[in-house]
Design a protein around this nucleic acid. Structure first.
Length: 555
RNA sequence: GCCGCGUUGGUCAAUCGGUUAAGACGCCUCCCUUUCACGGAGGAAUGAGGGGUUCGAUUCCCCUACGCGGUACCA
């Protein structure tokens, strides 16, 4: 019987959550769920100088929005706590392992000050070797327990001299491991430097902490970004010395997400520069007060965001692109993860969102759309605090019920929102009517605001109809108003029939009248079918809008 | 510089030695729609270069080029 699968996402709380980070979470999560394992969130806050207040909660919020909730985290502790490395450090967890490594000759004390290290780097820097490493050759020239006499070392220690503990890497060895994505990867220890394990302030570095914590938390699989690959040999050595290489989790180094233009990994700056989000949700830097826009606030559905991220580096081999989280949990395999980095394409991201907007029932996202309307100063549901349909969709259970619509899976009971007020019902009908032309939730505002706020006749561009306007058309609309006032049933089909019959009677091509009507009701050349619009607008408002523009055209 | 990892159309990518080298996004044309979309039908566009191995390489190996990552008491 093999051990229970356990994975962890270990971010440092230093700022907004990058979409690459979310993808790492996603792959962690998918693998954990697929194997009925655990997904853990561990906060790597060992660098107090980079600690940003609020970042931790923000990460949690992002995961909650995405529906990738950890089984164990600082906020929902399990049996392997604490889940913050600063707290683990306070318990003395790391120091003991560092001390053991020193005792057993796998690590040593180093007393070099930051200044001395700087001096060493500039001193040994050459054109051929621009960044000298603190390694097996240079350590003999530095101030450490390997180069100094034992008595002096003891003296320094007794005096409380600030020092770090560094791993002692022995040259001449080949270190290798099997990466779940890349296969065999080799490193010569000659090129591996003596990384600091325990800092002068007693905090572990990532290298020590990741190994100790992965062991203590019984992590079986460790997925992380490709930027970690070069430090893998240090981690392997640590595992070997501390807990045994055979106990080491299986590693998978994920490809990077690259900027759309040029090369290099995608950064927040690229998003600012090119006009798209990079963080999952809005992030406000507490130091500068500057807010960086997130995918959520930009109008993305979490389902689409995740779907898009999943496909950035993975596919199931069939050409299928639309996946709900539940599908991904079932289909995801590491051997189908790409090795090369992928350039982020915002257009494709919007396409995913568009697909999800179209396939999901509007009840699934009407709250978010409502928020966009209100942010734009339009309130489709005045006085309504919380929409009755507020349905917190759980992407696993909730979404799986919707999934068939979009993924073509076998039919299961569909998500069935029940409107509680007539206003809400109307709101939903409107969203339903325009969803096909929205790539972002925020676009519902542009596409449907005219339903809630009549266009000002004075600012409508009438140039498309004005040149061809004549008395016959004028009369048609006067008559149309009269007929509309007599309508018994106010439905799109009925309205259209009436309209066309009147046009025929007046010997005017319906096409010549449709655009004017559209301009009257919508205020622009866009939107769903005019009669659908009129139907939802209702008789009074429809007539009012026609009249408003008609007087203008007459003049 | 050194170490590591990569490299199929503009982008995401399939192919696990033999294909007319899929599909998607985007772009272009046409149809549908007397709006804008959706939808439908087409189109342009790809194996970095050089050596091998093989009857046969996009696929396997080597070299080169290029890109990226790392080279911190940051993660």
């Amino acid at each position: 019987m093999s051990k229970k699968v356990r994975l962890r996402f270990a971010p440092s709380p230093t700022g907004g959550l990058h979409l690459g980070g979310v993808r790492t979470v996603l792959y962690n999560y998918l693998f954990a769920r697929q194997h009925k394992g655990d997904f853990i969130l561990r906060i790597e806050d060992t660098d107090q100088s980079r600690y940003v207040p609020g970042a931790e909660q923000y990460i949690l919020d992002c995961l909650a929005w995405c529906g990738l909730e950890p089984d164990e985290s600082p906020f929902h502790p399990g049996p392997h706590g604490p889940y913050r490395q600063s707290e683990r450090k306070a318990q003395g967890i790391y120091a003991q392992y560092a001390a053991r490594l020193v005792q057993e000759g796998h690590a040593y004390y180093a007393f070099d000050t930051p200044g001395e290290l700087e001096e060493m780097r500039t001193h040994y820097k050459t054109p051929e070797n621009p960044s000298p490493q603190y390694n097996h050759v240079l350590r003999t020239k530095m101030k450490n327990s390997l180069s100094l006499p034992a008595a002096e070392v003891q003296q320094l220690l007794d005096a409380g001299t600030p020092h770090v503990i560094r791993i002692k890497v022995m040259p001449g060895e080949d270190i290798h491991f099997t990466d779940l994505i890349r296969g065999e990867v080799h490193f010569a220890t000659d090129g591996v430097d003596d990384k600091v394990l325990l800092k002068a302030d007693g905090m572990p570095t990532y290298h020590l902490a990741v190994v100790v914590d992965d062991h203590l938390m019984e992590i079986t699989h460790a997925f992380r970004g490709e930027e970690w690959l070069p430090s893998a040999p240090v981690h392997i050595l640590l595992w070997r010395h501390l807990f045994g290489e055979d106990k080491m989790p299986r590693w998978a180094h994920l490809p990077l997400i690259l900027k759309p233009d040029g090369n290099g990994k995608l950064s927040k700056r690229d998003g600012d520069r090119l006009g798209f989000p990079v963080f999952a949700m809005n992030w406000t830097d507490p130091a500068t007060g500057e807010t960086t826009k997130g995918f959520r606030e930009m109008g993305f559905l979490p389902e689409a965001f995740l779907n898009m991220l999943a496909m950035l580096g993975w596919n199931d081999g069939t050409g299928k692109e639309l996946f709900a989280l539940q599908d991904l949990i079932e289909k995801f395999t590491l051997d189908r993860v790409h090795k090369g980095g992928a350039k982020f394409d915002f257009e494709k991201a919007k396409w995913f969102n568009h697909e999800w907007i179209r396939q999901l029932p509007v009840g699934a996202y009407q709250d978010q759309v409502l928020a966009h309307f209100r942010a734009a100063g339009i309130d489709p549901l005045p006085g309504q605090q919380t929409p009755g349909l507020a349905t917190a969709l759980d992407p696993v259970s909730g979404l799986s019920e919707i999934a068939p619509a979009i993924t073509g899976a076998a039919a299961v009971p569909a998500f069935d929102p029940i409107p509680v007020t007539p206003e809400e019902e109307k709101f939903q009908k409107i969203l339903e009517l325009v969803k096909d032309r929205c790539h972002l939730l925020s676009e519902f505002v542009q596409q449907a605001s005219f339903f809630f706020k009549a266009p000002d006749p004075a600012v409508i561009d009438l140039s498309p109809v004005r040149p061809k306007w004549n008395e016959a058309k004028q009369q048609f609309f006067v008559e149309l108003i009269r007929q509309l006032q007599l309508m018994k049933t106010w439905e799109a089909a009925v309205l259209e029939k009436e309209f066309k019959e009147m046009a025929a009677a007046a010997s005017i091509k319906p096409g010549d009248l449709l655009l004017p009507l559209r301009l009257m009701l919508v205020g622009g050349k866009f939107g769903p079918g005019v009669f659908d619009i009129a139907a939802l607008l209702g008789p009074e408002e429809t007539i009012r809008r026609i009249k408003g523009v008609l007087t203008l055209l007459q003049s």
